[in-house]
Each structure stands twice: as C-alpha cells, then as structure tokens.
Computed example of a mutant assay.
Amino acid sequence: MRSGRLRALPVVTAATVIGVSGYLALVTGRLTLDVNIGRRVRPLGPLVLDIDAPRDTVFDVIAQPYLGRATRQQREKIQVLERGDGLVLAVHRTPVGGGLVTETVETVAFTRPDTVDFRLVRGPVPYVRERFRLAGDGDHTRLTYTGEMQTDGWALGAGWAAVVARRWEATVDDTLATVKAEAERRFAHGR
C-alpha cells in the first residue's frame, strides 16, 4: 500500500505544478483559453464621468501615452509595440496582487474628437471590446466607458469573468480618475 502512494507522488506533484503554472499563466495574461465552447458574454460598465475640460483636452490626455510622449509612470504601465494611422498595438500592465502583474495586449483606435476603442488581442480572457465615448460642449465633457467581455467554459467561464471583470473595471475606474484630474489640471493651467 505504501509503495502505491510513493508511485503516485510524482504524478500528483506534476499535476500540481502544471495546474499552478497554468493558473499563473492565465492570471498574468500569458495564456488565453479561447476554444469558443460555452461562450458567455458579460457587459463592462457603463462608467460615466463628468470632466470640467473641453472634449479635445480630454481626448489628448487619453491619447498621450499611445500617440504622444508618455511619462515615465505611463511607460511603466503601457508599452506601445506598433503605431499606425490612428491605431496602436500596446501592452498594458496591471498589478493584480500577490506581486503578480497581468499583461494584456490590445489594439487602441482613435477617432478624434469623440471615440477611443480598445480590443483585446491577448489576455486572461479570450475577448474584450471597450469604448471611451466623449460628449460635450464648451468647457465640459462627459466620458462614458462601455464594453463587453466574453469567456468560454459555461458557468466556470462566467465565474472567471466575474473575477477578471471586477479587477478590469476597477483599473478602468482608476484610469478615468487620472484622466479627469489631468484634463482638468491642463485646462485650468491653460486659462
């Protein structure tokens, strides 16, 4: 009986290592499970933010790390891999706790003056589309964030989407607060 347990130990150890490695790869965005079986859709947002700055200023703040000269802090979070005409491919780094950082690769499309669209290429889920819509007149802008996340695996995938979406929306909320503060600072400074 004891020798049977000893023979099973390498199998259990290997399964544990594979399971933990797979989980870490999934959490950090290095592994995307995209089998399109049991696909579930989950909305992201809406998040709405009123900003005391003109729409062009808000658009410029959003576009800066992608199309302009990024600050050191922005470069730690965003790395542009390719730039095209109104479109970039970028890596986004997000701390998720426990010293882990998720890396997503996304296309970001800019339609001045009112839309910025994001599409996930690689990340912890197989599909995400997001949009920042800017509406306003004069010195005030309303920024509306909406999106959609899809996962595979029926209820298991829906549970994973709930975990990922909670962190995803919190990260977007932090980004929007930063955009608001910077746009309002620039507008007040320019007066």
Rank of each mutant, 00 (worst) to 15 (best):
S21W: 09
Y127E: 11
D139S: 11
Q79P: 10
D114H: 00
L156W: 13
S3K: 15
P46L: 07
V128D: 03
T104F: 06
V125D: 02
K77P: 11
L100C: 05
P10T: 05
L176C: 04
L176F: 09
F118I: 01
V12I: 14
R142N: 06
D52I: 10
L156N: 09
T57Y: 07
R122L: 11
K180D: 01
T111L: 13
V27G: 08
L26F: 09
Q73P: 05
H92P: 08
R129N: 12
I37Q: 13
V96M: 05
A183T: 00
R2E: 14
R83N: 07
G68H: 04
T71I: 06
R186D: 01
E182N: 01
E106P: 06
Y145E: 11
T178N: 12
T16I: 13
G138F: 00
V11T: 09
L9K: 09
D152V: 01
G38N: 00
G38W: 03
P10A: 00
A14Y: 01
L87Q: 14
A158P: 05
V17K: 03
D56Y: 07
E106K: 06
V58C: 00
V17H: 06
V11C: 04
T146S: 10
G136Y: 00
T32W: 00
L176S: 01
D52W: 07
V108Q: 00
D139K: 05
A90R: 04
P10C: 06
T151N: 04
G84R: 07
Q73F: 11
D117H: 12
L87C: 14
A183F: 02
G159R: 13
Q79D: 13
D173G: 06
A53W: 02
G123M: 00
E82L: 08
F132E: 11
F118K: 02
A181P: 09
V35I: 14
D34P: 08
R5H: 13
A177V: 14
D139H: 03
R40K: 15
T111P: 10
A165I: 07
D174A: 15
E184D: 00
Y145H: 10
P124V: 06
L44R: 04
A135I: 08
V35E: 13
V101F: 04
Q73R: 14
D139W: 03
Q73L: 11
R131V: 09
I78C: 07
L89A: 08
I37A: 13
R119G: 12
R5F: 15
